[in-house]
Design a protein around this nucleic acid. Structure first.
Lengths: 159, 159
DNA sequence: GGCGTGATGATACAACATAACAAACGCCGC
DNA sequence: GCGGCGTTTGTTATGTTGTATCATCACGCC
């Protein structure tokens, strides 16, 4: 499935990737009894346009084409909803947002962010999760949220 | 030494902790031939006033008492200098800054952030570092910077 | 003295995010 | 039908965080 696991951002079929993400989102929201309204779905689609994190005001610019009344709160509310449902992540080090490739499975998001091409890969690594849990446990710290963002150069850009 | 390793933010002698951090900073800057000017040292001292991350504009408020001419660029320039010398870290998830307890030893900063009391502990954990390196390596990603911020409740606040 | 470099002063602005209240919409019980 | 309620969206304004740009100052050096 195009949107799962280690996404090859430079080579994959991104249209299928978006379609899949939107389909998953519709199913999840239906199952949960929450409303993935046209506005929210449009925002999700905009965030998914690439595998690069997108800023809220970029979303707003794009959204404004179809939604003339869109304003910052319009966008932030939609982003908050989507984050609440686990459909997107916020990349804290960039103040930007990214589609979640594991929507539906509760998880912390861990990311590899290429500073050259901007492509950002969400990684799922049990060993890393274990190491994070252990580190918190050692300090008798009750972890609730993990922000793990590794920036550098992706395989494609070092090549 | 008060400022080293796992700081017990709730119990330790913080005055000694600040003094130690400032002393280390002066020594490091002298050794490197860079200028820890009075302005920069004052900013460092303000950041070190607690073990809670402090916002740039909070630094500015505090700095203004002694430096009437201080403006946002004044503060951001000092913070940039201090980060460049590895004397403070930026906590991305809070847009705030924190004194570095391992100044002088190049390292990624990994943090445990208590959402209740705000105390933020910098952790040094070789296993976590190894897990992060491995995760990047597996994706053939050349890591340059790591942002690792775990928020939740500290040992003191879980009771 | 004149020059180069690094640090600070000063003004303006850009980028990111939220507060607060109003209006619209669907749903449900009556 | 319609009145009340919860959810979503509209609207205006403002708060917070961070930079760009150019001027000025201090110091060492030849």
């Amino acid at each position: 499935m195009a949107a799962r696991g280690a996404v090859q951002a430079h080579t994959h079929n991104h249209k299928a990737c978006i379609d899949d993400a939107l389909k998953t989102a519709r199913e999840l929201c239906a199952a949960r009894g929450v409303q993935l309204t046209p506005l929210r779905e449009k925002v999700l689609q905009i965030v998914w346009k690439s595998h690069k994190p997108v800023g809220a005001y970029d979303v707003l610019d794009e959204l404004s084409r179809s939604h003339k009344s869109a304003r910052p709160p319009t966008v932030y509310r939609a982003l908050d909803f989507l984050m609440g449902e686990g459909l997107i992540h916020k990349i804290e080090s960039l103040n930007a947002y990214l589609g979640c490739v594991e929507a539906g499975a509760p998880h912390a998001g861990h990311f590899l962010i290429c500073r050259k091409c901007g492509a950002t890969e969400e990684i799922v690594d049990p060993k890393l999760e274990a190491a994070l849990d252990q580190a918190a446990k050692r300090a008798r710290f009750r972890a609730e949220r993990q922000v793990v963002e590794i920036s550098g150069l992706c395989a494609h850009c070092t090549g």
